[in-house]
Design a protein around this nucleic acid. Sequence first.
DNA 1: TATTGTTATACTCTATAACTATA
DNA 2: TATAGTTATAGAGTATAACAATA
Lengths: 146, 146
Amino acid sequence: MREQRPFAEDLGFLLSRASGVIAKSASEALSPLGLRVRSYSVLAFVAEEPEGVTQRRLAALVGLDPSQIVALVDDLEDRDLVTRRPDPADRRNKRITATGGGHRLRDEARRRIDEAQAAHFDRLPPELLHELRKTLHGIAFPDNPA
Amino acid sequence: MREQRPFAEDLGFLLSRASGVIAKSASEALSPLGLRVRSYSVLAFVAEEPEGVTQRRLAALVGLDPSQIVALVDDLEDRDLVTRRPDPADRRNKRITATGGGHRLRDEARRRIDEAQAAHFDRLPPELLHELRKTLHGIAFPDNPA
DNA sequence: TATTGTTATACTCTATAACTATA
DNA sequence: TATAGTTATAGAGTATAACAATA
């Protein structure tokens, strides 16, 4: 009879708990800005694409169903953080781009996120953080070994 | 102006995506057994405590609010996987213990979970998995450096 | 008064299917 | 016919407050 690892050491369980801790702290950091983790993720990806992104691509980037992107973009658009315009070349596509205010809010959000995460990651050596990033990326995107 | 790391490399984002991938695969592995990730977590912790666990402690172990444990234990109890009995010494406490069937289902669930996780973790060297476990534990339980 | 378990409620997140407009 | 975006809906997960029984 082999010795069994306690469930508290199960990698899936630990991943879930650690992810929950970070998400909660991110959520609290973003709350004063009127952003949630998901709307911030959308804004962050949009702000990195000067040419704009389609909602389909946004869905793939964030890891949500395209139908869920609609309300997130609606909210950001209502607050003039992004614009949503049909692509003249293919009018089925909407190109989402960040406004000046969107970029500024994204910057402020990132500062807060970084500060919140520092409390969790600060004591870990940089090489370990680098390796953690690589490992998590491999798990999250098994087909895309960057 | 410093070079900024793309959001796709944000540790919180990667943690969330990786955790989601593993949770989805665990969910699919457990589904044929009529278990979800949360009910399996409860069952797994209960099965490790021959003396039984209070629901309060269970909540702390799994990382849920005590009010959420009620329905989970209700379901497991209805299926005769656990028993729920008042502690004679302090009748406010309920001692939750796993039945024979509970232990058997837990074993089968663990086999399936291990198999599902192997697909994600197999190619990672054991030392890295050990370090990952340690790192995630440190993030999830900052006060309890085991 | 404090603690355990419980109920109730509301909100967020997730998953899915069906519709529209364009191609 | 295929694709992008949209709407609607139901289910699961999460957070909070209040209550009964017991200490």
